[in-house]
Design a protein around this nucleic acid. Structure first.
Lengths: 205, 205
DNA sequence: TGTTGAGCGGAGCAAGGTTCCGTTTACCCA
DNA sequence: TGGGTAAACGGAACCTTGCTCCGCTCAACA
């Protein structure tokens, strides 16, 4: 456990960081998480630097783009969401039910992070990497759920996972700002609209 | 027709503008429209001033916020969309069909204006007025269509017009940037998901 | 303990929205 | 037609925000 430089069991080759560097990276992660909760994901970089008690240069040394910091802060939760996909598929009563529950999981995640959905927008150049990261991680999961539901004859096959994820992300924008806006309901309607009239091809259990 | 100062048959009391002021206002409107087509709605104010051949001060005299300029440019089309609602309700085969067609009209409008949907976001403070304008004009129309469909027993009553409009606006974000993203399809799914299983309460014609 | 380069801080740059204010000029009246 | 005046103009300047640059510091290792 108390190893020398063990952040990432994955890629060896990183030439061991200095202690102060590791300390600062962690401080930045903690500070960013706190600031994101307080002020939202679009909080100024300067605020985060101040909260962590480091200079601007330090932030950009560890996280070359603002998006990289955001990614790092939410990595664990994205990972958890990705892993929930196959699990739900195995445990839910049908692929469509699994899809529906997974989608709500994703919505809950997005909605609880002030402004994350907005920052993830496809057309936000500054956050292109964030967009890419979410897609890399979640697109295969979403596709698997979608395919399973198509396979089971529960939904039409004409919606790509990419479109669905995009749509969900978009629907969650602003959900944290307006208590009357119910992103979960809208997303659920969207997934419901996907459903075939019961008993067309195969039959649903 | 060649009146003295007749922009607005509505509110009297405006104390007659100078000729150069009227000329510049029109030039700005034209310039903004051109720039919006070329570079999108988020084009820098400076670009619009340059295109119109006026200074920054002039733009802000006529349109105190960037959003005011955007509103002015699209006012006609928003108006047309608003008026299409009752017309569709009168002509379509059912309220739900009317709703569906109206919604597609709105989607087409949003998608063809680079970045308009993005700028309209609820959580974009800079464009709060734009958001407000769209809502003022289109919310009653949407509510009317929704109510009619509920009345006819075609859809559930548990989705507010505000939520629906929000959702549609959100779904259209980025649609102009990514040719693979099909906002129209997603919105249609959403509206489809709203539909009651046929023949529940009243019966659909 | 001396050397050295990884790491640090923060001034500075660019971009974009908005404001300020000295100058210009359209319009009214004599 | 000639003045007077307030409306209108223009653009420099300001503020915020993301990101870069670079001289200084000090952790790590011999």
């Amino acid at each position: 456990m108390e190893d020398k430089n063990q952040d990432d069991a994955g890629q060896r080759a990183a030439p061991r960081k200095r202690a102060d560097a590791r300390r600062n990276e962690q401080a930045l992660l903690d500070a960013a998480a706190a600031v994101f909760v307080r002020s939202g994901v679009q909080a100024p970089v300067r605020d985060i630097a101040a909260e962590a008690g480091v200079g601007m240069g330090t932030i950009y040394r560890h996280f070359p783009k603002r998006a990289d910091l955001v990614i790092a802060v939410y990595r664990h939760q994205v990972e958890a969401c990705a892993e929930a996909g196959p699990a739900l598929l195995a445990s839910a009563s049908s692929p469509h039910a699994a899809l529906r529950r997974w989608v709500q999981l994703f919505v809950d995640f997005l909605v609880t992070k002030h402004g994350l959905a907005g920052a993830m927008r496809y057309d936000d150049a500054g956050f292109a990497d964030l967009h890419g990261y979410f897609l890399d991680r979640l697109l295969p999961v979403c596709a698997e759920l979608l395919d399973a539901a198509v396979e089971a004859g529960e939904i039409e096959a004409d919606l790509s996972a990419l479109n669905l994820l995009h749509g969900i992300g978009n629907l969650c924008i602003g959900a944290d700002k307006d208590p009357d806006y119910d992103a979960g309901r809208l997303v659920d309607l969207l997934v419901a609209g996907l459903r075939r009239p019961a008993g067309l091809a195969h039959s649903a259990p």
